[in-house]
Design a protein around this nucleic acid. Sequence first.
RNA 1: GCGGGCGUAGCUCAGCUGGUUAGAGCGCCGCCCUGUCACGGCGGAGGUCGCGAGUUCGAGUCUCGUCGCUCGCGCCA
Length: 606
Amino acid sequence: MHQYRTHSCAELRKDHVGETVKLSGWIHRKRDHGGVLFIDLRDTHGLTQCVVDEGSPLLAEMEKVRAESVITVTGAVRERPGETQNSNMPTGEIELYIEAMEVQGAADVIPFQVAEDDGAGEEIRLKYRYLDLRREKMQKNIRLRNDVIFEFRKRMREKEFQEFQTPILTASSPEGARDYLVPSRLHAGKFYALPQAPQQFKQMLMVSGFDKYFQIAPCFRDEDGRADRLAEFYQLDLEMSFVTQEDVFNTIQPVIEGVFEQFNDFTGTAHKVEWHDHIRYEDAMMKYGSDKPDLRNPLEIVDVTDVFARDDVEFKAFKGVIEKGGVVRMIRAPQVADQPRSFFDKLNSWAQGEGAPGLGYVKFENGEGAGPIAKFIPTAAQEELKKISGATDGDAVFFICNKEKPAAKFAGLARDAICNALPEGHEAAREQGVYKFAWIIDFPMYERDEAGVVDFSHNPFSMPQGGMDDLENKDPEKVYAYQYDAICNGFELCSGAIRNHKAEIMEKAFGIAGYDKSVLEAKFGGMLNAFRFGAPPHGGCAFGIDRIIMLLADEPNLREVYAFVMNGQYEDQMMSAPSDITLEQLKDLHIKLDLPKAKVKAEKAA
RNA sequence: GCGGGCGUAGCUCAGCUGGUUAGAGCGCCGCCCUGUCACGGCGGAGGUCGCGAGUUCGAGUCUCGUCGCUCGCGCCA
């Protein structure tokens, strides 16, 4: 007989009755009846009830072994007596009568419960992550992660993509997020950077002629975290040669759709998978106030600046902003006029909490407008508002007034706040049980800041639509890029582009953003050179794998879908990272610390 | 860097307008219990109320500061 086990803890059935078997696992629960003791033994596959019967010499010993200890038990499989069979357990027909037991790893008293969800906080769960990971929910989430990544690999290979590994120690890049830096011992004063994405490498693989690249790529960005953003994360990264934007969509969309369909009911609730038509970036900002709109929210934003600019409208608060170049945006909420006053008051205080003066509204009731600001808007103007938004009796419209960018953004927040405030079952409540995808396309290549300075608005390596001609002849703000995101339920799941593979267009593109040719050569010389030796047109994208799993598992943050993960401050309390290092290590690296004063004080005090 | 929320037993939390010995459930320890499967019963241990000042006769409770966690803003393809 095997030293540790003959079966898993989920395996034994009636057929095994009479066999002598061996199981190993963790003590999930103990039920001690004095004369008889039940132990639920757990491994990653399931649970089996084991029994120490009356008079067994093992009884006293078993009573002492704590929950979560690892033990090996040997004994006969018996059918449970009639009434005691448990139909809720796959192994509930049988039990193992323990004849021999060995403790493989005794457990101290555990800091929180593994066998049940006792609501233990994140801090302690992360500190004892190995215990947390034993819990059923985490075992399931990690298995889902494993399955999703396996499926991606399988489906990408079926599409003839080759999987690559690219360097982790690479060069710092001047664009985008802060880099994690690694000092070089061999080159005093120089640093490697961890990749924010394998961007340049995958493009150079296209120049190398590999045609279709993919990687489950680790990425690192030293920016403050969010629930859906961590210092290190994984992307399904891909790149293809000789493709248009639509080719990229048509290649990857079935992969993503297939995986979402395959795991749509992971939570126990079935979800449909739907793709919305492509949305132009500017339309997304106008209609939804976001470049990653949640399309389950049916509310839409319209521009009503012209109505409030009319001479017969006397709402001075808005007029003043319009005169300074501002805009008025409006959201129609259908059939909410009968909501209690508190519905509108709560939205108003929400807006104030976000730093806005408030959230003005007009209710259309009994053929006329009502509400605090309705009296400033004459009937003719109200009719115009109705016409623009399609509002009818019983609807309400909410207003946002500010300069264009903040107005669009705040309208987007208000759109979600209004939807969230609607009672369950309301016709405009957020749709449930569906993954609503869309490609956001036609991102602007450049943007101007308040001072009029032009800079890249997104990815500087994207091909400008219209190529050199647009760069030379159009206002930079009117140049669009072959740049796209895929969004789902309010998350940006993917970002990508058809790349700029022509050195001369790249020089021009960077020049417009104020980057001198010498800077370009210094920072991207490697890739620029590559483009001078025969570069194919190419493009691709990268999907955030962790966000995908978070959506499938319906988890509120990314930490629930990683085995090992840092906290919100990017510290790992289990491994004590980041940590102090020795003076010798610093010397090796030619580094002297120059810590901020407050920090020194705090550390001395500790 | 900024703002909101939280911080009381190992874990999760209650603790009112400030008032005498700070509670509950789970866990832990001891005793009892032959069929449970969230077993049950009896008893017990366990607290720097995050930390530091202040107000007060008196602070878990009020004020200020500070630290930690978390959500968001900034930042971030």
